[in-house]
Amino acid sequence: MRDLASGIRLFVDGQRWVLRHGRWFGFGLLPALITLVGYAGALVALAFWADDATAWATPFADDWDSPWRGLFRGLLTAVAFGGGLLLAVISFTAVTLLVGQPFYESLAERVDVSEGGAPDGPDLPLWRELLQSARDSLRVLVRVAIWGVLLFAAGFIPVVGQTVVPAIGFCVSGYFLALELTGVAFQRREVPLRERMRMLRGRMALTLGFGVPLILCFLVPLVSVLLMPGAVAGATLLVRSLMPPQGVPEPRPESGAPVEPLDFRKP
């Protein structure tokens, strides 16, 4: 329970940090606004062209009697738009972080500096950082899709599917959202994705305490845009709670033997 409360406190502290540093709040809003405008335009285009696309994709229904042709194509149109909307919700954070990589890296660095013990950032060109971030985001989205299929199938189980499965879904979504958001601070410390996942799973209550409230807030339209700067700041504080200053993980001695600190910068 203590870790769960600490995770919630990190969520609040991140929002509080950007509100105390108003310039960084506005700075962090830009990528989310750009992504929001892009997604809104894509969804409007999808809504406008979905009927034509459905009719083009189902020529075999041209000879069907009314109202079956209209009902069938209307259902497919609704499914297509709903799928696009779901994809937008799932990928919004990943795309925003990719678009705003330079913005959020600067924000995470500023949080580290203000808290003390800021690590040196990776000595990589911007295109390499963007490529690495895109690759990690794609790997995370694949895992999200797999979990989504499993939870969707489990939703058909009587009683359990309407009670336990939604709760598990929020926890899974909170974990992956925390994994996405901490990617900026972890990448500055050159921690690979697999190790990030291990560290977050090792403090699951802390991770869920941070991620689940964010997921619940992100369900409200436009709130995700307003909370993104604070979410990145809070994720940086979360990483700092998992790792000591300068990006060296806590050693875990076995049988009393001393353990050298891990260096993630080594191949």
Rank of each mutant, 00 (worst) to 15 (best):
A145M: 10
Y175L: 12
A108V: 09
D123L: 08
A185V: 07
A118E: 09
I157R: 07
L97E: 05
E105G: 14
S114C: 13
T182F: 01
T182L: 04
G116M: 15
A108S: 13
G100A: 04
L138T: 06
L98M: 05
Q162K: 14
Q132V: 08
A167T: 15
P166K: 03
P166L: 01
G148S: 03
L141C: 04
R139K: 13
V160K: 04
A145H: 06
S106R: 15
A154I: 00
D120H: 15
Y104H: 14
V111K: 02
W147S: 08
L179D: 03
A108E: 12
L138M: 06
G100W: 00
T163D: 11
V140M: 13
V111D: 02
S114K: 15
L181W: 08
R143I: 12
S173G: 06
V172C: 07
L98Q: 12
F156L: 12
S137N: 10
F170K: 08
G155E: 01
E109I: 07
W127Q: 11
P102F: 03
P119E: 08
L98A: 03
A154E: 03
R139M: 11
E115V: 15
G174I: 06
Y104D: 04
E180A: 05
L150H: 04
T93V: 13
V164L: 10
I157W: 10
V184S: 00
A118W: 12
Q162I: 15
R189I: 04
V142T: 01
A185K: 02
S114I: 03
P158G: 09
R189M: 11
